[in-house]
Design a protein around this nucleic acid. Structure first.
Lengths: 163, 163
DNA sequence: ATAAACGTAACCATTTTTGTTACAAATCAA
DNA sequence: TTGATTTGTAACAAAAATGGTTACGTTTAT
């Protein structure tokens, strides 16, 4: 009896433990996927690259890639072709694509979340905190964008080849 | 024998979980909650503020606040007192607390997530993309921290009063 | 005509996150 | 010392977010 309980707890403990190992990787990986995809397309140059091939190198499902491709397309970074020999193509030279553009294409870009429920309007802080946080958010979002704008896809390719 | 080992692993698992679970995650409102709480404590000055009162103005549960208070405490930003008339107290003047410190206390601060599954090691991009993304991550994280370090709790109070 | 590829909807499983209840430990005051 | 108050913490509920999967219609090159 005592042994059974111990075993049960152990399983729960392991479950939590597994989550810990994943926690560091479990934010949205859309930006990482997008940079990866754009880098592959840049190396392919004029050749179309299908969602299946992209999915293989990223190690995910083709539909996940296709969803990403739609957003990169809407941002004007790539174009896609249907039919046999179809796939995705870079629209600009790698030196003309900033990581900021890739980020904006696939990620909403807020650096932190805000109050899910309206704070107490009776408290002087609660009444006005939302507007203050909004201003902080604007500043941090812009800082992130500035830094991403300083890097291009060409820099990524250079680093990929230099190691 | 097997049971003993199981119990040991369980304890380790839980210990790790409690630390990481409370310190991680990105699109959460923990930073907004923490700034809110710190602003209320700053206005209260020498008066202890209980988790219940803080929970009311933030509009959440006292336990959510207490979990936050533990991290702010570990970061050296506040101290707490148990018992009647207990609660939380700011340890420094608002002008000496940067938003970067609050952010670091409560949020791990990764600006984006990375590949959840290992990319194909057969592809020149898949093989090296992780290290490249790591460097990009470092740069964007630092950019975020720099911007947050330029704002203090005193600035937040000023904005709260100026509107 | 056929096969290959995208576009898209629907759904599942897992993870993440806040919120909630409950209770032990600490502490103050009468 | 006793009782009330508050933190600290475990456990779990509920919902949201996310990636992954299957399926199928549409487009297009050969």
């Amino acid at each position: 009896m005592g042994t059974l309980e111990a075993a049960t707890i152990f399983v729960i403990g392991l479950g939590i433990c597994n989550r810990i190992c994943y926690i560091n990787f479990m934010q949205s990986c859309r930006f990482a996927f997008a940079v990866h995809v754009m880098a592959v397309l840049a190396l392919e140059k004029a050749h179309c690259c299908s969602s299946s091939r992209l999915a293989q190198t990223v190690n995910t499902n083709p539909v996940v890639i296709r969803r990403l491709l739609i957003e990169l397309q809407e941002a004007g970074l790539i174009s896609t072709l249907r039919g046999p020999r179809g796939g995705a193509l870079l629209k600009r030279k790698p030196g003309k694509v900033t990581l900021r553009e890739i980020h904006e294409a696939v990620d909403q870009g807020n650096t932190f979340g805000t109050h899910p429920n309206e704070p107490s309007q009776g408290c002087p802080v609660g009444k006005k905190i939302a507007r203050v946080m909004e201003r902080i958010q604007d500043r941090t979002n812009r800082a992130l964008e500035r830094e991403l704008a300083r890097m291009t896809l060409a820099d990524v390719l250079r680093e990929l080849q230099s190691e």
